[in-house]
Write a protein that binds this DNA or RNA. Sequence first.
RNA 1: AGGCACGUAGCUCAGGGGGAGAGCGCCACCCUGACACGGUGGAGGUCCCGGGUUCAAAUCCCGGCGUGCCUACCA
Length: 881
Amino acid sequence: MASDKLDKSYEPAAVERRWYEYWEEEGLFHADPASEKPPYSIVIPPPNVTGQLHMGHALNNTMQDILCRYKRMTGFEVLWMPGTDHAGIATQNVVERQLASEGKDRHDLGREAFIERVWEWRTEYGGKIINQLKRLGASCDWQRERFTMDEGLSKAVREVFVRLYEEGLVYRGDYIINWCPRCHTALSDLESEHEEVSGGLYYIRYPFKSVGGYLVVATTRPETLLGDTAVAVNPDDPRYADLPDDIVLLPLLGRELPIIQDTYVSTEFGTGALKITPAHDPNDFLIGQKHGLPSVRVMDDSGTINEEGGPYAGLDRFEARKRMLEDLEAQDLLENQEEYLHSVGHCYRCKTMVEPILSKQWFVKVAPLAAEALKAVQEGDTRIVPPQWEKTYYEWMTNIRDWCVSRQIWWGHRIPAWYCACGEVIVRRDTPEACPECGNVKLEQETDVLDTWFSSGLWPFSTMGWPEDTPELKKFYPTSCLVTAFDILFFWVARMMMLGIKFMGDVPFKDVYIHALVRDASGQKMSKSTGNVIDPLTVMDDFGTDAFRFTLAAFAAQGRDIKMSEERIAGYRNFVNKIWNAARFTLMNLEDWTPGQAPAGLKLQDRWILSRVGRVADEVAQAIEEYRFNEAASAVYQFVWHEFCDWYLELAKGSLYDEADPTGQAASRTVLAQVFSRVLRILHPFMPFISEELWQRLPGAQGSIMTAPWPAAGPEERDEAAEADMQLVMEVIGGIRNIRGEMGINPGQEVPLVLTPHQDGVADLLEDQAARIMSLAKTSAPAWAAEGSPPAKAASAALPQVTVYVPLEGLVDFAAEEARLAKKLAKLEKEIAPSQKKLANEGFLAKAPAAVVAKERAKVAEAEDKIARVQAGLEQVRSFL
RNA sequence: AGGCACGUAGCUCAGGGGGAGAGCGCCACCCUGACACGGUGGAGGUCCCGGGUUCAAAUCCCGGCGUGCCUACCA
């Protein structure tokens, strides 16, 4: 394999497909619960089965994959548990749309046939998102793929529901819930999204029955007055201190309504009189309960006025509003109306305006569960990263209301409750034969299904086989980390916390890493309607998966949203190509090489790069461990491009091409192979595909890079001396290049070089490195000048340890050199000013730590030295002019 | 209304009490035997404003201004 020549640029498509298949065939993603290795586990946030991979998924799963691949390389038995969510309302909507295009609706099919149809849909299309995740390189254990509606998970759902019911934590009751008139189902508070809506505030007159006059009530939803059962005022409101002892008549319908007093009513808003509609407003419902008021429901499940609405029966809620306002106006009962901006709930799925409606629903009593979940984070059993989200979590866990878990749709886990004609409610794991109270065998099962988040709340343990006691649970629960965006912190994370603690007796994850949202280049949320969506699949087609993944990692700074742009991805595509070409160079030089230990007598650049690559491996490792993906990415980027490619490969050319020194050549080849192997391994968590492709081409490669050990080095492998010496060599070359560039010397033109060392050992070092300097800075062999007798007509660069002279007689205009040095001087003086100021400050000398003072002193001394040399150079140049 | 972020180079953003950083863009030169998806050099910043703490503030605190987002039952 190593013998095929590489193309000049990297072509990702074929490579990606090939290696993903290879990994799967080799079973490299599979986790073994019997392994001796320490466990590391992550459960995937299950994408909706209807899902299409979007930027959010891509970011989320790339991070998980980075963690998993890294952990495998560092010796962990890694389980990344994948699967999909049945996504009740979303999926039902998709299939209903499909039916609609055939001119049918779900009622034409009936419940069973409809569910059958959804399953068919799932078989046909449900694997789409899974394939897209594979495309992304996700190293999930696909042999364990689960679905929230599959047999095992359904069993877990029933188990949890029944146990909660038996403990009194599940109850059924009348309650105001958020109703979506289009989806025909209840929504949890979270599923009702508040949006600012500009509507009207209407002032309506409610005439007194016996005395003259009226009470004016302000409302934004006049149509609900059909269901009014009282009008309330605040007993402390002076405006209503001498209210007549009377009742009022409901406009349009004439029903008699009592006037009640309740401190809930604000004296600041509207008229201070509030209509009470217990069946259609959550607050009114509470007031109604308190005062024993009847509830009159005036709308059906589609938001159409029902028979309670008298003349308005059969009208849609908005149509009714319009008609009623006209009628009120006609009867002179509409006193006033004004524009009013208020926030109204909308269905999170279909954006229809939510209607608060009184109905019978199933609830989970969350207070006791939430208390434990709160404590777990407070006590550090689960760590939220970054910690700023803790507060939000606490806030929500403390103010949480009971969770409405019933949904009036067909696709989902049907609630395991049966009703008997005798009034008995039976909640069971399995279908009961007969009513335990009266023996009746005709039982009706509850038609409602459970909220989708009920089953996803069990995901960390249901996927591992709970309620059975499985080896997977033993080995991998609690999971190590959950990676998610904050927008489902409450929907999902909070529920997993509550249910995990309740049923497993332990938190579901040790860490929760909360990452950002991906937005478009101008910071807008990506949405189909605004057309600013960047499709990850297109990006992967255009730039390659590795470049895309690396971009996501590089962007993923904690606590900030990500603005995605194609230019950035193109930048990292270039990086991938750079790696590819570094590999071309490397492999080209390793054609006649066989693996083995590096011979003694390494060159400075070899010692330097070995030290550096180890340091970078450790830095990257630490950054990944701390979820600082962007820092990990930038460390590896910086190193690979600007140290390995820019310096090492260039420096190595000298000995790699040196046929006269076969020993040195062999040593360089070995170091090159070793370093490149480590580079690939450091890159692998970020760029699984190209790293595998190149790994397999390395001479002597064995097995997948996935199973190769992480190139950890540790402090004992640092070569500080080599790093310091290389630093000087790079500065000398930089100084010469600066002179060349600024002086406009042709890149092909070789220039003379004169060096004046200021420290012991420097001359030896630079003499030893002369060939490298000559080649990288394009100079002739260095000459040496004693301190105080600089060469004539030379440009100079002053370094702390050495002054570099480039004699430029005949090459340049010395006026330009004068300007260059003057600029340097000004810059140096400006740079050193703050430090000089500090040292002049007595408080600084007295109070700052000694090390800081010493550092500042050294800095100033060095700079002053340098300034003196630049000045000398400047004077010399001036003397030529 | 409350809460949480953010304001650093032309753009997008890292950093976070003691030497202003990156990528892209820009300018100049260069097809040097891995790479023009490249190389070398360079320009560019009152770190939003005002106070405070400190020997020292872009960084911490307070107050503005601006921008996002989240939560909330005032009809």
